[in-house]
């Protein structure tokens, strides 16, 4: 049954996500700068930017409709829900039954559809281009992500993210080959879904190469702030999901307060390592042409299917 401590834990997880997500983006930016021998921006830069953007007026294009104004809030809501159901500190999340892993993919899909529609709303050349490319990356990444989830769900006999994490965290340390395949595929997918190099470049404004940035060109003020915040929440959600699925150790089971407190520094540590890893991958790779993205994500899909087959062929008796 839903307990008070569970509710508090849930609220805390959401607040932590809201606070930590920009920090994670700032950390990745810093690591990138160090690896590329640049002077690093301050760690808190994303917060300053959010503050600045919230203060500014919204400048809307003449052709912007109500959907354009609603979309940032919808996307933000979707990302908050995603962060709420992914176990970051504890698996005792009252909201977790609301959406299992399949519905989680649906949440990301819903956000993607809204941001793509908003990109098409003003009717500029870059907006439609970005919308089309985002949907392209989306339909390539979604099956791969689902196959990763299928592999895990078959290992654990459940699609509930909390159950998967709980089960994986409390079994003896066995290396499953299927999990290795799934892990690599998941990494590929997270790069594509979070608009990172090699699929997209979050720092670019070079017109022909952008995807995510092209979609949000017309946004300003609080709308842009919400979208940027949602983007960092998405990165946080994917990082937490990856950490929870493949490195689940330390996540508190149930409402054990001490374990919960102990989980916080561990989460920060894991996120710091993960962010540095992301920055390293982004630094040693070049952005690829958009039509190489199908090959990249096709590889991810094949790896995930391979993981599934390995799971079915070799581990079905485990």
């Amino acid at each position: 049954m839903i307990s008070i401590s569970g509710l508090l834990g849930q609220a805390f997880a959401i607040l932590l996500a809201l606070v930590l997500a920009p920090l994670l983006s700032g950390w990745v930016g810093q690591c990138r700068a160090w690896l590329q021998s640049r002077t690093a921006p301050p760690l808190l830069l994303p917060y300053y930017q959010l503050q600045k953007l919230f203060h500014k007026d919204v400048v809307l294009a003449h052709g912007a409709s109500s959907l354009f104004r609603a979309a940032p809030f919808v996307v933000f809501g979707c990302m908050v829900l995603a962060c709420a159901i992914i176990p970051s500190l504890s698996t005792d999340l009252p909201l977790a039954p609301a959406a299992d892993a399949l519905a989680l993919v649906g949440v990301f899909g819903l956000a993607r559809v809204f941001i793509s529609l908003a990109a098409m709303d003003v009717g500029t050349s870059f907006g439609t281009l970005g919308g089309r490319r985002e949907m392209l990356v989306g339909f390539l990444a979604e099956p791969a992500l689902l196959m990763v989830i299928f592999t895990l769900a078959m290992t654990v006999q459940s699609t509930s993210v909390a159950t998967i994490v709980e089960t994986l965290a409390h079994r003896e340390l066995v290396i499953y080959p299927s999990l290795a395949f799934a892990g690599i595929a998941f990494t590929f997918v997270s790069f594509a879904e979070n608009a990172r190099v090699p699929v997209d470049n979050p720092a670019t404004h070079l017109e022909l190469t952008m995807i995510h940035e092209a979609m949000i060109l017309e946004y300003s003020g609080r709308h842009l702030a919400l979208i940027e915040w949602a983007a960092s929440l998405k990165l946080y959600a994917y990082s937490c999901l990856g950490l929870a699925l493949f490195f689940p150790w330390g996540i508190a089971p149930g409402d054990n307060f001490l374990a919960l407190v102990a989980a916080i520094p561990l989460l920060l540590f894991k996120l710091a390592i993960g962010g540095a890893f992301l920055a390293a991958i982004e630094t040693i790779n070049a952005k690829m042409r958009i039509f190489r993205a199908p090959e990249f994500l096709g590889t991810a899909f094949m790896l995930a299917v391979l993981g599934l087959l390995v799971r079915l062929l070799l581990e079905s008796r485990v």
Binding site: V74, F76, C78, V80, L81, D100, T159, S160, T163
Partner: peptide
């Protein structure tokens, strides 16, 4: 095994919004 609560899903997104 698996659960989905669309109403709570919807309410959470709407409330955040």
């Amino acid at each position: 095994r698996a659960s989905y609560e669309p109403l709570i899903f919807l309410v959470t997104i709407a409330a955040t919004l």
